[in-house]
Amino acid sequence: MDETGKELVLALYDYQEKSPREVTMKKGDILTLLNSTNKDWWKVEVKITVNGKTYERQGFVPAAYVKKL
């Protein structure tokens, strides 16, 4: 869990989004888990830094590609 009590997951593999509802992740990324009720796709939040500014983006990743921490 992070400092706000949200559950975290670890990306076990790289994943490139294939639709606007998904998010890209790299092996080793730590993501915030938002919803894991679907056994195949989990909703996560990723933080992306571009030119020194951090953005948060929500989307789905394959559940088999992440592990709860």
Rank of each mutant, 00 (worst) to 15 (best):
M1H: 15
M1E: 14
D2K: 06
D2F: 04
D2S: 11
E3N: 12
T4K: 12
T4V: 12
T4C: 13
T4N: 15
G5S: 13
G5F: 12
G5V: 14
G5K: 14
K6G: 09
K6F: 13
K6W: 09
K6I: 12
K6V: 14
K6A: 12
E7Y: 11
E7K: 09
L8P: 04
L8T: 08
L8V: 08
L8C: 10
V9D: 00
V9W: 04
V9F: 04
V9S: 02
V9H: 02
L10K: 07
L10Q: 11
L10H: 04
L10M: 15
L10W: 06
L10E: 10
L10V: 15
L10A: 05
A11S: 05
A11P: 01
A11H: 01
A11T: 04
A11L: 02
A11F: 02
A11D: 00
L12V: 07
L12P: 00
L12H: 02
Y13E: 09
Y13L: 09
Y13R: 14
Y13D: 07
Y13C: 12
Y13F: 13
Y13N: 09
Y13K: 14
Y13S: 08
D14S: 08
D14P: 05
D14T: 05
D14H: 05
Y15M: 01
Y15W: 11
Y15C: 02
Y15S: 01
Q16V: 15
Q16G: 06
Q16K: 14
Q16N: 14
Q16T: 15
E17A: 15
E17T: 07
E17S: 15
E17M: 12
E17H: 08
E17D: 04
E17R: 14
E17G: 15
K18Y: 04
K18F: 05
K18R: 15
K18N: 10
K18I: 06
S19K: 07
S19I: 04
S19G: 11
S19T: 12
S19L: 08
S19D: 11
S19Y: 06
P20T: 09
P20L: 08
P20N: 10
P20Q: 10
P20Y: 08
P20G: 08
P20A: 12
P20S: 11
P20V: 09
R21V: 10
R21P: 04
E22H: 05
E22T: 07
E22D: 05
E22P: 04
E22Q: 11
V23T: 04
V23K: 01
V23H: 02
V23D: 00
V23M: 07
V23C: 07
V23Y: 03
V23S: 01
T24G: 08
T24N: 06
T24Q: 04
T24A: 06
T24I: 02
T24F: 04
M25S: 00
M25T: 03
M25Y: 01
M25K: 00
M25I: 15
K26E: 05
K26V: 09
K26C: 09
K26A: 08
K26Y: 11
K26S: 08
K27R: 11
K27S: 07
K27Q: 09
K27N: 04
K27G: 05
G28M: 02
G28N: 06
G28S: 03
G28Q: 02
G28A: 02
G28V: 01
G28K: 02
G28Y: 04
D29T: 06
D29H: 05
I30A: 02
I30E: 03
I30D: 00
I30Y: 05
I30M: 06
I30Q: 04
L31D: 00
L31K: 00
T32N: 07
T32S: 08
T32R: 15
T32H: 09
T32W: 12
T32F: 10
T32D: 05
T32L: 15
L33H: 01
L33A: 02
L33P: 00
L33K: 01
L33T: 01
L33S: 01
L34Y: 04
L34F: 04
L34G: 01
L34A: 03
L34M: 07
L34C: 06
L34W: 04
N35R: 07
N35G: 06
N35W: 06
N35A: 09
N35K: 06
S36D: 15
S36F: 06
S36Y: 07
T37L: 09
T37C: 11
T37R: 08
T37P: 03
N38K: 06
N38E: 11
N38D: 15
N38T: 06
N38R: 09
K39F: 08
K39E: 09
K39V: 10
K39L: 10
K39S: 12
D40H: 15
W41A: 02
W41Q: 02
W41P: 00
W41C: 05
W41R: 03
W41V: 03
W41G: 00
W41N: 02
W42G: 00
W42K: 01
W42E: 01
W42R: 01
K43D: 03
K43A: 08
K43H: 09
K43E: 14
K43V: 14
V44W: 00
V44A: 01
V44R: 00
V44I: 06
V44M: 01
E45N: 06
E45D: 04
E45A: 14
E45S: 15
E45C: 11
E45K: 11
E45M: 12
E45H: 06
E45W: 06
V46Q: 15
V46S: 12
V46R: 14
V46N: 11
K47D: 08
K47C: 10
K47P: 13
K47T: 14
I48G: 06
I48E: 08
I48P: 03
T49H: 11
T49W: 12
T49E: 13
V50N: 10
V50F: 11
V50I: 13
V50Y: 12
V50K: 11
V50L: 13
N51F: 10
N51K: 09
N51L: 11
G52I: 03
G52L: 07
G52Q: 07
G52D: 10
G52V: 03
G52Y: 06
G52H: 08
K53I: 15
K53L: 14
K53W: 13
K53Y: 15
T54N: 10
T54I: 12
Y55P: 02
Y55A: 09
Y55R: 07
Y55E: 10
E56F: 15
E56R: 15
E56N: 14
E56W: 15
R57S: 05
R57I: 06
R57G: 03
R57D: 03
Q58K: 08
Q58Y: 07
Q58P: 05
G59R: 02
G59E: 01
G59I: 03
F60R: 03
F60L: 09
F60C: 10
V61H: 00
V61A: 03
V61L: 02
V61I: 08
V61Q: 00
V61R: 00
V61G: 00
P62I: 02
P62R: 03
P62M: 03
A63T: 05
A63Y: 02
A63C: 06
A63H: 03
A63F: 02
A63N: 02
A64S: 13
A64N: 14
A64W: 08
A64R: 14
A64I: 11
A64E: 09
Y65D: 02
Y65T: 06
Y65V: 05
Y65M: 12
V66R: 00
V66H: 00
V66I: 08
V66M: 06
K67P: 00
K67A: 11
K67T: 15
K67S: 09
K68Q: 07
K68N: 06
L69N: 03
L69Y: 08
L69T: 05
